[in-house]
């Protein structure tokens, strides 16, 4: 059986991430903020395909998503780190498949991603550091993390099941 990154259909499924980021379905938002689709796709990919593939996938996703946003700060560092970490978790120890664990990992990944973006914004806009006092950053971070954590058991479990069948350990 070929590895996950050698299967064109599985690789092509990554195109859903920028598509959903652009479509931003309003019925899947909480207080106007949507889930982190990149985290929801990267988590099962890295758990199945390992740390190197996870990091490369994080790099590719980060590049595409940075191109689709206004810029100023990048998702690359967080997505690459998460891809590497989740890949190691998938390769070492028992396989992670419980819904609660997947939800928790997605919640934590979304928190890391949001925190990295927020810190970059504060760092780049240091002159206007009054933004630190604003609740907006925390609000966006927490809402996105909660939404991603709640959706993860449904989407990540399904992708994990599908991809583990295609690329067994």
């Amino acid at each position: 059986m070929r590895r996950l990154h050698q299967q064109p259909l599985c690789v092509a499924s990554a195109l859903v991430v920028p598509w959903l980021t652009l479509a931003a379905p309003t019925w899947l938002t909480l207080s106007g903020v949507g889930p982190s689709w990149a985290v929801l796709w990267l988590l099962p990919w890295a758990l199945v395909d390992g740390p190197v593939s996870g990091m490369v996938a994080g790099l590719c996703l980060g590049l595409v998503l940075d191109g689709l946003s206004l810029g100023g700060c990048s998702q690359l560092p967080a997505l690459m780190s998460l891809g590497w970490w989740w890949g190691r978790l998938g390769r070492r120890g028992p396989p992670i498949q419980l819904s609660f664990n997947l939800g928790l990992l997605a919640w934590f990944g979304s928190c890391v991603l949001g925190l990295s973006l927020w810190l970059q914004m504060v760092w780049l806009d240091f002159a206007n550091s009054f933004q630190i006092q604003e609740a907006w950053g925390w609000h966006t971070l927490m809402v996105q993390a909660v939404l991603t954590g709640l959706i993860a058991p449904m989407i990540v479990s399904w992708l994990l099941l599908l991809w583990r069948r295609r690329a067994p350990l």
Binding site: L22, A23, A24, T29, S31, G32, V33, G34, S69, L70, C73, G114, L117, W118, M121, T140, Q144
Partner: peptide, 14 residues
């Protein structure tokens, strides 16, 4: 307007 994210990390329209 083909895409909109009025809230979140980037507030933009496409």
């Amino acid at each position: 307007v083909i895409s909109r994210t009025p809230q979140g990390w980037w507030q933009q329209l496409e």
